[in-house]
Design a protein around this nucleic acid. Structure first.
Lengths: 328, 328
DNA sequence: CCTTCCGATGCAAGCGCTTACATTCCATGT
DNA sequence: ACATGGAATGTAAGCGCTTGCATCGGAAGG
């Protein structure tokens, strides 16, 4: 039913080899012949069969993006952004992309092989076993938004410390001296970096950090609001909160409203991710911006290069900046 | 390098045909033989090569999800939800999924063929030419969140009218008699349905609809806020606003705050989509819930069946319900 | 006019799997 | 002991493409 290279060959009166070359190496075919082939092809509505091509070339051009985080999926704007970047780049580079969340990674590692996946992008924090599994099947790996010690893998991460530093600096510039950190619900790597960034920034600003001012909560706004209530209801409360995500920041703002604290008047807040909700909150949320799409694109580029045997940098850092709005 | 069916065949001492059967039709192979085959396979870390299989079987098991909406992508929570459902189901049914946004659909239609795409899910409002293009290549099509007259295509849509009706009813039950509708920025189909739903609902509640109470705005919160300012600042203002999306609702709430109107005290608001932001707004937003994931899953099921030649229903309606929170 | 050489083309062998058809095996029935 | 049939297995021909190598044709050089 669908036209094959044979049909084109017959109609144009040249061999299949020539037809093949006319498409994949036009330079090797005489102008005139090439034109005849193209005519025949379009008359037959012929398009090369990518599957057969892959089969013959012994490659699959397939990559996978695994989101390794409990209940974090494409619905999470952050991962969606990365995914968006990955998709775009994959399409552009003619790579098949398989996206999967982590819940079934055990099995994923297996049919990653059967699906002939040549490279895999691991988002969130991947289990070391998973990594070994892929390495054993010598599938090329790129980490995104994570780093793993013990494994020498290329990774692309945001400049977390810088992001936090920018936020802290901004708060300091606005006159805040007592700055609290609210974090939690993220991967060890992220939590680690942001915490370290906070400590560094506070030190360089010459501000003390009290243990009471570093609070853990989970990633929901409700949980954040609860923790924030506790943090903010004391008499000697911080005047600014540096939240680990926009959702947490939203929780903090809820708590502030409940306690009758005006934002930014009596309490300044910064978020992280610069997600869509920043513009919806009242006042609009100042937040650390990361170009997630670029992270995704970079990851694919790295993967592509790695698969092609090109040497790639171990660590690619995507810059962060502060998107200033109304909460400071 | 990678073990093939031949290697397994040799090691286990049976023919490749038997190995093949041991994997794809275990019932046809004697218990004992099957075990030998499996042992050999796992010794060689063999996994069937899906590409070769597809090639032999003359099918690709590839489908595509095209988001046909300017600047709406996976970043839009709504589409992300559908996409999530599609991915899950596609993975479960062992289908390759290609996700692409609409900007390059022209070319997409072409390499959809070369990539051997067997079926395509069209999200948002697709161009009729696109549809014809696919039909010409006889690629099976399923529409999601849209319907197209002139084409007899299976589609899965949410029960928009019911959703609007539920919201209107709820507002009515809370004593509101002057209910405004704020909409815009969506596809003709969605706008049409929701508008019709509004008119229907108001009629059945015995409430009059004044033209002044139906406002158009685009999909951003800022635009919505502006329109809402106008709508709400007159002396004879509506007491409730039924917004076409959560973002628009957020804009309305902003306007209300700016005008000093308390929500829900002096103004009730309902949103649509029941997205993550509902819980972040203050007060939390009452919104129409749609099981988008199920929409995606259903679309894949429909596609699968269609590709298999099974007769499928023309229209699948996913029920909607009202997620009640604090803005009514 | 006849080599020489190179660009253009054709030939045919795979790539790893499935499957129709042929063959072999073995448990029955007689 | 032997015919018989169904179950288990083997044989080999594809699926649509690429590509190393062989072949051909014509321009350039002698």
């Amino acid at each position: 039913m669908k036209a094959t290279i044979y049909d084109v060959s017959r109609l144009s009166g040249v061999s299949t080899a020539t037809v093949s070359r006319a498409f994949s190496a036009p330079g090797q075919v005489k102008e005139d012949t090439r034109r005849r082939v193209y005519e025949a092809a379009s008359a037959l509505k012929y398009t090369p069969n990518a599957i057969a091509r892959d089969m013959a070339l012994q490659r699959s051009n397939r990559i996978a993006y695994l989101i390794c985080k409990r209940q974090a999926t494409i619905l999470d704007e952050f991962y969606a952004g990365i995914c968006e970047g990955i998709m775009r780049r994959a399409n552009a580079l003619n790579l098949q992309l398989i996206v999967s969340t982590a819940d079934d990674w055990r099995q994923m590692a297996v049919n990653a092989q059967s699906k002939q996946v040549e490279g895999v992008i691991l988002g969130g924090d991947a289990a070391p076993e998973l990594v070994s599994e892929f390495q054993a099947r010598n599938t090329f790996i790129v980490l995104v938004n994570n780093r793993m010690r013990g494994f020498d893998l290329p990774c692309v991460v945001a400049d977390e410390r810088e992001g936090i530093r920018l936020a802290a600096q901004r708060l300091h510039a606005a006159g805040h001296r007592r700055i609290a950190l609210m974090m939690g619900g993220y991967s060890p790597y992220i939590v680690g970096e942001r915490y370290a960034g906070f400590i560094e920034a506070m030190a360089s600003l010459g501000l003390p950090v009290s243990d009471a001012d570093v609070t853990m909560c989970d990633r929901s706004a409700a949980s954040a609001a609860m923790s924030a209530m506790k943090l903010l209801s004391g008499p000697d409360r911080p005047t600014a909160v540096l939240a680990v995500s926009d959702v947490v920041a939203a929780g903090v703002m809820k708590a502030a409203r409940r306690l009758g604290l005006s934002v930014p008047g009596q309490l300044a807040v910064t978020g992280y991710d610069d997600s869509a909700i920043c513009n919806l909150l009242e006042p609009e949320l100042t937040s650390v911006h990361v170009d997630v799409r670029r992270m995704g694109e970079t990851a694919v580029d790295l993967l592509r290069q790695g698969m092609d045997g090109v040497q790639t940098p171990r660590i690619t850092v995507i810059p962060t900046r502060l998107a200033e709005r109304g909460t400071v």
